[in-house]
């Protein structure tokens, strides 16, 4: 049995509760993340994938539900010290390499922010040594420490963001669309770096993205979200070979691949939520169709999926 690092149980995140424009950004989502794995979370903009990540790391207070980190509730009341400890163990890499680094701070101070907050260096010298080491870890060098973020390219900035997250030696990193703002040639650099770090440091990732081909490559398992709900969760190769939920199927059929022949013959499926035709009172929930392959479906659909699997 693999060790569960993160357990998300019935997580709900509603905005503007009670007002006419209430948004159910995350609506009753449950999943686990095992130690050392990469869980991919995909879906289109507004499906709640980023909100899920941000709620897990407490940037938002959950409306309802639990997030357990090593069996401990993340959202419960906590002492300042416990909270700080938690902040060290869980880190985030952000989407926009231009907005995620403070433009007025030097690279050394950006990377060392976690070191300063948690008092991880005893002297100025030790602090700089750590910064240099982190820069080298992400493939940059010490002479970059005294520069400002705007002097770096997008890929370099994203690596600085990774170095900042690594500075506090986390166990779990939420990567919120870390490559979608980068050029193709640079995306691979960042993905390779993340994988190499995972191997070296035993990191666990939640990788949020809309680029499905990269997600498939980096993830062990993938969850697909649609309008605040998790609709399918499966090991990544299974998800690509046997997508069960019609939304997953439409999403997969829409990815353009770098192969002109494939593109000429591509058949695109569209998803219409009306196909489910759920009856009133029918219980729709995540059901395990095959070991590790969960689909959001009704009992009737469940039987169909099982029959044809």
């Amino acid at each position: 049995m693999k060790e569960k690092l993160i357990e998300v149980k019935g997580l709900k995140q509603y905005f503007n509760i009670g007002s006419p424009n209430e948004v159910r950004a995350v609506d009753d989502v449950s999943f686990d993340i095992y130690k050392g794995e990469t869980l991919g979370l995909v879906g289109e903009s507004g499906c709640g994938k980023s909100t899920t990540g941000r709620t897990i790391i407490r940037l938002y207070d959950a409306t309802d539900g639990e997030v357990l980190f090593k069996g401990e509730d993340v959202h419960g009341k906590k002492s300042k010290k416990a909270l700080k400890e938690f902040n060290r163990k869980m880190q985030m890499i952000f989407q926009d390499p231009y907005a995620s680094l403070n433009p007025r701070m030097k690279v050394a101070d950006i990377i060392a922010e976690g070191i300063d907050i948690h008092g991880l260096a005893k002297s100025k010298k030790e602090r700089m040594e750590k910064v240099y080491k982190l820069l080298e870890t992400v493939g940059l060098n010490r002479e970059h420490a005294n520069r400002y973020p705007h002097e770096f390219s997008g890929g370099q900035r994203q690596r600085l963001g990774i170095a900042r997250a690594l500075a506090v030696e986390p166990d779990f990193i939420i990567a919120d669309e870390p490559i979608s703002a980068l050029d193709v040639s640079i995306q691979a650099q960042v993905v390779n770096l993340m994988q190499q770090l995972q191997k070296e440091k035993g990191l666990t990732y939640l990788f949020i993205a809309h680029d499905l081909s990269m997600v498939k490559y980096i993830s062990d398992r993938i969850g697909v979200m649609y309008f605040g709900k998790l609709v399918e969760l499966a090991p990544s190769s299974v998800l690509y070979q046997k997508p069960l939920h019609p939304y997953t199927q439409s999403l997969l059929s829409a990815i353009p691949l770098p192969d002109p022949d494939y593109e000429r013959n591509r058949v695109r499926k569209t998803y219409d939520p009306a196909v489910h035709n759920y009856a009133a009172g029918e219980e729709v929930k995540m059901r395990e169709v095959a070991p590790g392959h969960w689909v959001y479906c009704s009992e009737k659909e469940f039987q169909q999926h099982k029959a044809t699997y």
Partner: peptide
């Protein structure tokens, strides 16, 4: 709501630090 402020929050920075290191200088 900028990501560098969120990043600082996830690192465990308190309001004072966020205000005087990130928000005011910018």
């Amino acid at each position: 709501t900028q990501e560098f402020v969120l990043a600082s929050r996830t690192l465990g920075a308190d309001s004072r630090r966020i205000l005087f290191k990130h928000l005011i200088p910018n």
